[in-house]
């Protein structure tokens, strides 16, 4: 039961993007279409789940004083691996995500979960936490991606639903990201019935 709780928490109640407001940089940058958003979500999930796993596994052998450098080594190892794999097997996606895949290293969700959760909790809970947080991140990122692509380019996942002439280009430009994310945050707060 408690494992399910670890999983659930990241999706809505502590959604990293819309509630904790961390990891916003890639969210703003790669949410201009749904495919990019989904690709980024997978990359972050890969790194987050594995780094939570490894940090939790080794939490007894990592000395407290140098835990942060060690977290960063672990995280950057997984980020680099995912970067190579994407370049090798998904070159088009890798090209459109560009520098934001290597930048997962500095995404605060991952270091944040390592420090706040995985370093203090058993392996299974940490993996569940990683999965939950990844799902929450993916949910937020893909929702934003779908909304922006639909309103800004008239398509969803690349399928043209209406002519681009009717689409408001501002939605796939940076301001569209801020407007969408702000409205989604407000809606989620209203749903949870409390104001930050």
């Amino acid at each position: 039961m408690s494992l399910l709780k670890e999983l659930n928490r990241g999706i809505i109640a502590e959604n990293p993007v819309l509630r904790l407001m961390i990891g916003l940089c890639p969210v703003l940058a790669v949410s201009n279409n749904a495919v990019n958003a989904l690709g980024m979500s997978f990359a972050v999930a890969f790194v987050l789940i594995l780094s939570n796993l490894v940090v939790s596994l080794l939490r007894k052998v990592i000395p407290d004083e140098i835990r942060i450098p060690i977290f960063i080594i672990i995280i950057s190892t997984f980020v680099t691996i995912s970067d190579y794999i994407m370049k090798a097997y998904f070159p088009a996606l890798s090209a459109s995500l560009g520098v934001f895949v290597p930048l997962i290293v500095v995404n605060c969700i991952i270091l944040g979960r390592a420090e706040a959760f995985a370093y203090k909790n058993p392996v299974l809970s940490s993996v569940m936490d990683g999965i939950g947080m990844s799902l929450g991140f993916a949910l937020a990122l893909v929702s934003i991606g779908v909304i922006r692509e639909l309103l800004g380019a008239g398509s969803v996942f690349g399928f043209q639903l209406f002519s681009q002439a009717y689409a408001a280009t501002i939605m796939i430009l940076p301001p569209g990201a801020f407007i969408t994310i702000g409205i989604l945050m407000a809606a989620l707060n209203k749903m949870e019935n409390k104001v930050l």
Binding site: P63, T77, I81, Y84, I85, K87, A88
Partner: peptide, 30 residues
């Protein structure tokens, strides 16, 4: 303590080297 850090770096470097060699050919081919 320094030894632990060195060990982590070593494992990380080894892993990355392996992935790099493994994917290098494919990336170049792509």
């Amino acid at each position: 303590m320094g030894l632990v850090l060195a060990l982590f770096c070593l494992v990380s470097a080894g892993l990355l080297a392996w992935v790099y060699v493994f994917t290098k050919g494919i990336i170049a081919e792509q």
